[in-house]
């Protein structure tokens, strides 16, 4: 009878550890699967994917529960696109804003990821009027 109790206890602990592992797995999966929704676009697909990936990586690199730093994400995206696709890119990140912009052809993307909205667009670099 004692042996039976020990066996039950061992199995119970094993099941508990399985449950804990599964919970961690679920949490990790949920954290990784940010929902992305492209809302407006005038941009070649490779650039779109680049922006989405950059934003996703940035969000994933933050510890869970930390509040998003809008400015840091905007900076990361702008810098990546300025260096990869030439100046001048602009990026707005937030949960509540509207905008009206003039952008270069093929240089506009407005998407949401998780609860954040991101606007990324390019303007032509022109000589100043003298």
């Amino acid at each position: 009878m004692e042996e039976a109790e020990k066996e039950l206890e061992r199995r119970s602990k094993f099941l508990n550890s399985l449950i804990q592992k599964k919970k961690k797995g679920i949490e990790q999966h949920e954290h990784e699967s940010f929902k992305v929704h492209v809302r407006a676009c005038d941009m070649p697909l490779p650039l779109q994917n680049r922006a989405l990936q950059c934003a996703r990586l940035h969000l994933e690199s933050m510890p869970p529960g930390n509040k998003l730093d809008n400015k840091r994400l905007a900076l990361a995206l702008k810098k990546e696109f300025d260096s990869s696709y030439g100046p001048a890119w602009h990026c707005i990140v937030g949960t509540s804003f509207g905008s009206y912009v003039t952008h270069s052809v093929g240089g506009f993307l407005y998407f949401s990821i998780d609860k954040v909205y991101i606007l990324l667009f390019k303007t032509a670099v022109e000589p100043l009027d003298h």
């Binding site: 809008n70 995206l77 702008k78 001048a88 602009h90 990140v93 937030g94 509540s96 905008s99």
Partner: peptide, 9 residues
């Protein structure tokens, strides 16, 4: 807007 951050040139 009431909640946004941005970077631009």
């Amino acid at each position: 807007g009431s909640s946004f951050g941005c970077f631009f040139t």
